[in-house]
Design a protein around this nucleic acid. Structure first.
Length: 434
DNA sequence: TCTGGGGTCCTAGGACCC
DNA sequence: TCTGGGGTCCTAGGACCC
């Protein structure tokens, strides 16, 4: 391979949520384990042992009750506080070893490796895997190549292909082009990063079944049928980088807080409680990245699986009088919007709030007419108040200080029946015997 | 009975302007 | 009575990711 491009390693934690649970509960090792989505609805992570039983990510729990019982599968609610802090440990470990890393998701990072010598890259990949394992207890797989998409392919080989699985490392820079082509002809199109279900179906209908066949398709055809993103993916598989590194994540352009309820709710009062709680969370996220929002959307809906006539979904979008991250101001507008779309007589299953058109706090332009929050002095006073509230909640635990209408009962809250302790963030829960 | 949450990017199509 | 063409901005919706 040409040394024109920088080698990149994709480091991906194996069955991340399950691995996090195992670090603090070794009894889960070598056993089938599942971690469930919010409300314990469906499977979001499965251990290898569970996958061998045929359990896949995404299946609803009620469909596999028998399987769980029969094989004594361990089932846990998701504990995002724990996973977030374990993710932080993994990423910090990587940052100490590699000069340039891109945190791609909670359990994955692209690491740009210095040097081009394939043999040395092998050694580095092995070292990354070993060090992360020692420091955090989380097993990872490492895939190395010259483009992100090929590093993804390599990573998958490191996880699944018996040839690489034991080492947990697959380094495509040691492969010749014919060897890479051979490998790609064994990769299904549906397993390519950037090809989802719809595109995989489309490609198969057009006789394209493997990653090799895909990358050999003409550019014009790719762009016409799969847009520019599909074309980029093909180029990346040909070894030409098209997807740039993002070393410092850009500020988010929109932020959502939404959640399904633990039980269906009907009254405007309870919906208002929920929406107020969500807006409070969302405003915290907004302030953490020092942004203010210009627009907001709130949505509510019944279950997608409700019968015809019992189904209702609606959303209201509004432009805020002036960009803000001040919780009471956001709550005020959200409640008004909710009243516009609320219809009595439905069993609501989920609500959410989204803010768009975010701008940096420092660049906020004051509305000429002085609508909304008011003048600069008020805004500054409100800002300081929020800093104080955020600080208290950070120290004392979430929702120590909150707005009245959030309610304290929250009987609609999430179901999380098998939640593990917050080992990494609460001393009192680290030692507790469960 | 029970089906997650949070993001991004791209395109098509409508409204509006000249 | 005839009824263009191109640009921009916005929104909705689709597709993808983990």
């Amino acid at each position: 391979m040409s040394p024109k491009y920088k080698p990149v390693a994709l480091v991906d934690c194996n069955n991340f949520y399950v691995s996090c649970e195992r670090v603090f509960n070794p009894a889960l090792l070598n056993r089938p384990v599942l971690v469930l989505s919010n409300n314990d609805g469906c499977v979001v992570a499965a251990s290898d042992e569970a996958k061998q039983l045929g359990i896949e990510r995404g299946v609803p729990v009620f469909e596999i009750r028998d399987l769980i019982k029969k094989h004594g599968v361990e089932v846990w609610s998701s504990n995002y506080t724990l996973y977030g802090s374990m993710s932080h440990r993994v990423m910090s470990t990587l940052e100490e070893m590699v000069p340039e890393i891109e945190r791609y998701s909670i359990d994955e990072a692209f690491c740009w490796l210095p040097g081009f010598d394939p043999a040395k890259l092998d050694k580095q990949a092995v070292k990354i895997r070993k060090t992360v394992g020692q420091y955090t207890g989380i097993p990872v797989s490492v895939g190395v190549s010259l483009t992100k998409t090929l590093a993804k392919v390599a990573n998958r080989q490191a996880k699944k292909n018996p040839e690489f699985k034991d080492a947990g490392v697959c380094n495509l820079t040691t492969f010749s082009q014919p060897e890479i082509d051979q490998l790609l002809s064994e990769v299904k199109v549906s397993d390519i990063w950037g090809i989802g279900r719809r595109r995989a179906e489309f490609l198969q209908q057009h006789g394209v079944f493997t990653a090799y066949e895909f990358k050999e398709m003409p550019d014009r055809w790719l762009q016409k049928n799969l847009t520019i993103t599909g074309l980029r993916t093909a180029w990346e598989l040909r070894g030409i980088p098209c997807i740039k590194p993002e070393f410092s994540p850009p500020a988010k352009k929109s932020i959502i807080t939404s959640r399904g309820f633990g039980r269906p709710i009907e009254s405007l009062e309870e919906l208002t409680e929920a929406v107020t709680a969500y807006v409070s969370r969302l405003a915290e996220k907004l302030r953490r990245q020092h942004s203010v929002a210009s627009r907001m959307e709130i949505f509510i809906h019944t279950s997608h699986f409700a019968r015809q006539g019992e189904r209702y979904a609606n959303a209201a979008r509004l432009r805020l009088p002036q960009p803000t991250s001040y919780t009471p101001e956001l709550v005020k507008h959200a409640r008004r919007a909710l009243e516009l779309i609320y219809r009595p007589g439905f069993q609501y299953q989920k609500a959410g709030v989204m803010v768009m058109d975010l701008v940096p706090e420092s660049a906020r332009q004051l509305n000429l007419w002085g609508e909304g929050e008011g003048g600069p002095e008020t805004i500054e006073r409100n800002r300081q108040l929020m800093v104080a509230v955020d600080g208290l909640n950070m120290q004392m635990g979430q929702s120590t200080v909150r707005l009245g209408p959030v309610g304290t009962k929250q009987t609609w809250g999430m179901r999380r029946e098998k939640l593990s302790n917050r080992y990494t963030t609460r001393w009192d829960e680290l030692l507790e015997v469960s």
